[in-house]
Design a protein around this nucleic acid. Structure first.
Lengths: 244, 244
DNA sequence: AACTGCATTATTGGATCCAATAACGATTTA
DNA sequence: TAAATCGTTATTGGATCCAATAATGCAGTT
């Protein structure tokens, strides 16, 4: 399943066969280089050098650096351009914790209010996808992709239903860090049995969260959602669990 | 105290007598126009027209729009430029709630770990400023400014001490919305007695949060910090309480 | 009269050029 | 010899110009 995160992220970033516009291309390339450590922490990033490196004008580099600054991946050095801010594992943990808190707020808000019938229906429909996935006791390779979609739908639904737009914008930060977003199945699940076990646990956490929400147990829903995010922090049983 | 928010925000944004660079100027002007509703919700913002309006080139407008897009204040319309996303009171409430949750996470993290002696000392020093402010039972006009500084120092200290950098980047979003940031004393305190009463309440919440932190009562610290943020939501006794 | 195709135009994105500014080094003087 | 000042240079920010592209309006045809 090596191509999974590539497939997902690339598709989301429009990185298909169609030629990407220079601006986007530079942005994604720089982002990838920084988070991967190819550009080491603290390294200066000059507009001219970068532009020449990518064979583009300085303009796309400039806009990309501005965006990366907003994302916290580069820091502005007064008049000396920008410097890469390497992403340490600790920062990813930090982002995961923030995500848990924000998603926890989302479910708490949902559970604190009367549940619209439409939401309950949609939530159950999403969860049914997960149930179907784990009906058997083993995984086929394509099931990872299906879980990816299901997981994304679950988190997106809750975000939408919270009715709090500020949560979404705050979360959009974290999603730029691979491993930190709910969508990122960053690690390759080379062991399908392993994947089945761990992703099933994630699905059952989803069920528990949903039950707490639909029953109006707001505090419990929030706590469970936080815990669900934190599960990505500790390696637990397996080599390393991606963000589920 | 009409000039307060102006003073604070302007100073923070560098809006003093020194001429601001075009990029900054356009960015701040557009931001202000959108949040104030001068540019109505959904209104299209074209580069050329805006550039002419401000008497600058299209370039600063472009970068400003990119930044505002990151902040969620404008939305991109495919090839038709950008559209203003009006800020409703509800969105400000949303942002305040998010702030409470994020700052709540910060204090919980601090309280969950051993307290560095340096932090305890600095925290007490900051709180002493507040104590001095409310030693008397009335306010002088300049005390509002002093409270502004003290309040900012309190929140910044906790943010720093949390050790979680993701909280800061997530919070930087909300701070762009006036009334949502901890720094914004958005409403004019024309009644000094009123200001004294309400800001003193805020200070006592600070004390309670600090006590919970230093005593290691993480859950309580988090809850109190959330409540502290939410206090800005309900008008309560007075006409309208700014974000304290 | 309505629909489709083409041409025009408005608008964004990129590239190049110019100005301002701060860092750095060399040179001169005490 | 060391420090200070002046000049050079590297680098960012802004302005203008050019290309690509999609929306819009007009005309022609069915």
């Amino acid at each position: 399943m090596r191509g999974l995160v590539g497939a997902g992220a690339q598709a989301k970033q429009g990185g298909m066969t169609a030629p990407m516009k220079p601006g986007q291309r530079v942005l994604f390339a720089l982002r990838k280089m920084i988070v991967s450590g190819e550009i080491p922490d603290g390294a200066r990033i000059a507009e001219i050098a970068t532009a020449e490196r990518f064979g583009v004008s300085r303009m796309p580099v400039r806009t990309a650096l501005r965006t990366l600054e907003q994302e916290g991946l580069v820091a502005k050095l007064g008049r000396r351009g920008y410097a890469a801010r390497g992403v340490t594992p600790g920062q990813i943990d930090d982002a995961i914790e923030v995500r848990g808190v924000l998603e926890g707020l989302a479910v708490r808000l949902i559970a604190s209010r009367p549940i619209p019938s439409g939401f309950a229906r949609r939530l159950k429909a999403v969860l049914a996808e997960g149930d179907a996935l784990f009906a058997g006791d083993s995984f086929a390779p394509e099931d990872i992709d299906r879980f990816y979609s299901y997981n994304l739908a679950f988190h997106d639904l809750l975000l939408d239903a919270s009715g709090n737009s500020a949560i979404g914008v705050a979360l959009s930060r974290n999603n730029h860090l691979p491993l930190a977003s709910a969508a990122a199945l960053a690690l390759d699940w080379d062991d399908l049995a392993n994947a089945h076990t761990n992703l099933k646990a994630a699905h059952e956490e989803h069920l528990a969260v949903a039950d707490a929400i639909l029953s109006g147990r707001a505090d419990e829903a929030e706590q469970r959602m936080r815990q669900h995010a934190r599960a990505a922090l500790n390696p637990g049983l397996m080599p390393l669990v991606g963000t589920v």
